[in-house]
Each structure stands twice: as structure tokens, then as C-alpha cells.
């Protein structure tokens, strides 16, 4: 099988959901951002407040919407291969196959995030007075996205269950809102708070937070790659 044919097969194996869902998520968030801005105007708020409400909605899309969708997607991909036994019997490493699938799903999520980022800038909803779109602005979504992707993969492999991985990701996501005061009042927890930009803004520790999250994602990626190489562990997954 040529590399191109292999790539085409893997893309088909990912299924249409992997490609369509980030786009649907984008449309849903844009809808809510528009409603928030329009509602502010109808309630007599100033144009700048309506603009701010819509901007928060769009920041939410890149900082918490797309990362959750990507995390849930990779948890499903990692934990589901109906021909796993067959693949493990082949000379090729399953670790490489798993890593390729993870990379393809993440790449699409990254491409959508880059496109949405560019659209926000072009549409004039980027918080330019606080942060430039590149290079630091990319960390608004890159850090949480990579954390969700690598955490979703690692949890799916550790628990050998897609739904448990999804449940933990979902609660971590909700927990960022529900426990926001707890995260922000603790010196260590605020450094790993995932939705810092949309919920708080660009703080003095914003860059440290983003870099620590990237480091965390790197550590989780190493753990996921290690688990992908443990064949006997992979075989015990839930049906």
C-alpha cells in the first residue's frame, strides 16, 4: 500500500463526523455570539458592549468550543478499532497507526481553528488592544485544544473506554465554569485554568498559563504514545 493510499484509507476511516462536527460547532457558537450581541443592542446597550458580547462568544468558540469537540472526537477514534486484534498481529506498529489517526483528527481541528481565528480577525472581533493575533494570540486556542486532544486520547487508553474519557472531558469543561473562583484563587490551579482568555482576559500570568498547558499537553502525548505501544493493555477495551 502506498503512503497516499494509506492516508486516504485513514481519512475515510475517520468518517464524515470528524470533519463535519467542528464546522457545526463553529456555526452553533457564531449563532450564540450573534444572539448575545443582538440582544444587547435590543436591550439598549451601547454598540461597544454589543461588540464585546459577540467577541466573547467568538473567543469562547476558539478557546472552549473547538477544543471540547476535538477532545471528544479523538477519544472516540482512539478507543474504537473493530480490527484491533488483526492490526496487532501485523508487523507494523499499532503505535504508528494510532499516532497517525490522532494526528489527522488533530490536524483538521487545528485547520478549522486557524480558519476561525482568521475570520474573527477579518470580521473585526479580535481583541486587538489586548493581544496580537499572531504569534501569542494563537495560544488562546492552541493550548486548550492540545490539552483536550491529548487528555481525551490518554483517558480513552487508560480507562479503555470512550465514554468514560468523554465524561471526564465534559466534566473538566463544565468544571472550568463551575469552579472558576476556585481555579483563579489558587496560585497553582490558575496556571492550568483552560479558559483564561474568555473568562478573565489577558492577565499577568496569561502567557505562563498557556505555556504550562502546552507542556502538559506534551506530557499527555508522551503518555498516550506509550500506552499505544502496550498491545496487551489495548486488547482489554470495552465493546
Amino acid at each position: 500500500m502506498t503512503a497516499f493510499a494509506r492516508l486516504r484509507y485513514e481519512l475515510r476511516a475517520l468518517g464524515p463526523a470528524a470533519f463535519v462536527i467542528p464546522l457545526l460547532v463553529t456555526l452553533i457558537y457564531i449563532g450564540f455570539a450573534w444572539i448575545a450581541g443582538d440582544s444587547a443592542l435590543r436591550n439598549g446597550a451601547s454598540d461597544s458592549f454589543a461588540h464585546y458580547q459577540a467577541m466573547r462568544g467568538l473567543l469562547g468558540l476558539i478557546e472552549n468550543g473547538l477544543p471540547l469537540a476535538a477532545g471528544l472526537q479523538v477519544a472516540t477514534i482512539t478507543g474504537a478499532d473493530p480490527a484491533l486484534e488483526l492490526q496487532l498481529a501485523l508487523p507494523g506498529s499499532y503505535r504508528a497507526t494510532g499516532a497517525l489517526r490522532l494526528a489527522l483528527a488533530s490536524l483538521w481541528a487545528l485547520l478549522v481553528a486557524v480558519a476561525v481565528n482568521a475570520l474573527i480577525v477579518v470580521a473585526g472581533y479580535w481583541p486587538s488592544s489586548l493581544i496580537s493575533p499572531t504569534p501569542q494570540g494563537l495560544l488562546i486556542w492552541l493550548s486548550p485544544l492540545l490539552v483536550f486532544v491529548t487528555l481525551g486520547t490518554t483517558l480513552a487508553l487508560v480507562f479503555r473506554s470512550r465514554v468514560v474519557s468523554a465524561a471526564i472531558l465534559a466534566l473538566l469543561w463544565i468544571g472550568q465554569f463551575l469552579f472558576e473562583p476556585l481555579f483563579l484563587s489558587d496560585g497553582l490551579l490558575k496556571l492550568v485554568y483552560l479558559f483564561l482568555t474568555e473568562q478573565v482576559g489577558i492577565t499577568s500570568y496569561w502567557l505562563t498559563n498557556r505555556l504550562i498547558l502546552l507542556g502538559l499537553a506534551l506530557g499527555l502525548l508522551c503518555a498516550a504514545l506509550w500506552l499505544l505501544g502496550r498491545n496487551e493493555w489495548l486488547l482489554g477495551a470495552e465493546a
Partner: peptide
Amino acid sequence: LWPVLYQFLFVGYWFWGNY
């Protein structure tokens, strides 16, 4: 619905409908 789409919509619903 696709399982992942349902998962995302469900989490979003819970946040929207309760928070």
C-alpha cells in the same frame, strides 16, 4: 445523531440550560 455530535450537544445543552 453521531455519538460525538450528541456528546458535544449534550454538554453544550447542560451548560446552556442550567448555567
